[in-house]
Amino acid sequence: MIRLTDIERVFTVGDEQVHALRGVNLVIGPGEYLSIMGPSGSGKSSLLNVLGLLDRPNAGRYELEGRDVTGLSDDELARVRRERIGFVFQFFHLVPRLTAEGNIELPMVLAGIEPAERRRRLDRLLAEYGLESRARHRPDQLSGGQCQRVAIARAMSMNPSVILADEPTGNLDRSTGQEVIALLEALHAGGGTLVMVTHDAEIGGRAKRRIRIVDGRIVGDER
């Protein structure tokens, strides 16, 4: 499903070279549920960005569903992100002027899907995430939990093969966080691949496979 080989990521900060990822090797099978944990600055976000094709490694090879995506152009990467990867962010990243519906629809709009088909998927997603009554509300009229549900619905709208979640509960209170985790786990239970970055040991511990990363190196891989 996902195969990372000798991934290096180096940032230049001033005169210094900062190694965010050093020789990362990671294989993720289809339908896996794994968490990436580590102290802040350990490189877990860098790893997630590389996995999400938002960032290119300086060296190494990345295969996604058997296809080498390391050398793709920006536009090709955008297409792969659109079709295959769903993102859930800590700060939700909803477009403030769009309604919940508009936000969920966004990836489908960018993909140029017909309005009738969009409507069908929207209705299904709104029902699935209990947002029917909130469909026409804008993000500032929604609670944090509702916002994250919108974001998860958005991530699911293109039926991606991988869901990448970056601290999905970091900005939510405990009970809402549990709710969101339950939703994500339900996705996994439905056969989706779920990768979650978190520094919350309790949430990270629920994953079937737990990666620990320190100083850009994978130091632990528990199943």
Partner: peptide, 16 residues
């Protein structure tokens, strides 16, 4: 910026 970043993450190409 954030919105543009989001659009790109969601798969918008430069042309879009």
């Amino acid at each position: 910026r954030r919105e543009i970043g989001l659009l790109k993450a969601l798969g918008a190409t430069g042309a879009q």
